[in-house]
């Protein structure tokens, strides 16, 4: 995972509440078996007037000029400003991949949906929760004639506004540590392999009905119609 320390970047104001992951990346793009190729379809249903399919490039599409992503002011955006409950709905991590690939490194909102929030940290996308009054001020700033830049300083847990006002934010210290150091989440857990094995052995004693490889295998071959190829 790419480490995250500090960025200074342009703010893209997306003034909608309850933005769901179906809007962030619509289902027709989830057929890919890869982790990349989603950035051109970020907010596809809002960004384009025609229905897109996998493999099209944006210049083959009809742009929706009313949508903020297509506003000439925000073409270098790295910070997405959103309303409450951002990322609700489907667990698709493709939503995070699409944001990152488009160039977004930070999402600022008054609240996030749980699964999306968790998915962000696995990929080096920083979700920041700020109070409504600050969000309101940021929307006002970001909607002006000239786009604005913010500095997001993760070690200092602060957002610096253009007028040098500094807003502090909370973050789980473990998640912060992982992001700053770009740590391998699976590697961290595998370092505890011995404890997991010890737990599993005791658990197997207590709940033997959950460890039934032989029976499961027998059940799996029951009425199987065979080879799928």
């Amino acid at each position: 995972m790419k480490p995250f320390t500090e960025i200074t970047g342009q703010v893209l104001p997306l003034d909608r509440a309850n933005v769901d992951t179906d809007q962030i990346i619509p289902k027709q793009f989830l057929k890919s078996i890869r982790r990349t190729g989603f950035g051109d379809n970020l907010f596809d249903g809002w960004r384009f007037l025609d229905e897109g399919s996998i493999g099209q490039t944006p210049n083959e599409r009809r742009l929706n000029h009313e949508f903020v992503l297509n506003d000439s002011r925000y073409q270098d955006a790295q910070i997405l400003l959103a309303r409450e409950n951002f990322g609700c709905g489907s667990s698709r991590e493709h939503a995070v991949w699409a944001l990152l690939e488009y160039g977004i490194r930070v999402v600022i909102a008054p609240s996030f949906a749980d699964i999306f929030f968790s998915n962000c940290f696995k990929n080096g996308l920083l979700p920041i929760v700020l109070k409504e009054n600050i969000i309101e001020k940021l929307f006002e700033l970001a909607s002006r004639e000239q786009a604005v830049d913010l500095t997001v300083d993760l070690p200092g847990q602060r957002v610096v506004l253009p007028d040098q006002e500094t807003v502090l934010f909370d973050i789980d210290p473990n998640r912060k540590h992982s992001l700053i150091n770009g740590l391998d989440d699976i590697g961290l857990t595998l370092a505890e392999s011995e404890r997991i094995s010890t737990f599993e052995a005791g658990y197997r004693q207590r709940m033997p009905w959950l460890f039934r490889e032989a029976e499961a295998a027998a059940a799996a071959t029951f009425s199987n119609t065979g080879d799928s190829e």
Partner: peptide, 21 residues
């Protein structure tokens, strides 16, 4: 429900790392 990174994490470790709700 979990994201794909956690699918990989659970495949590899049989554990999910999370905070209690």
């Amino acid at each position: 429900g979990i994201g794909t990174s956690d699918v990989e994490h659970v495949l590899a470790t049989q554990c999910l790392v999370q905070q209690k709700a």
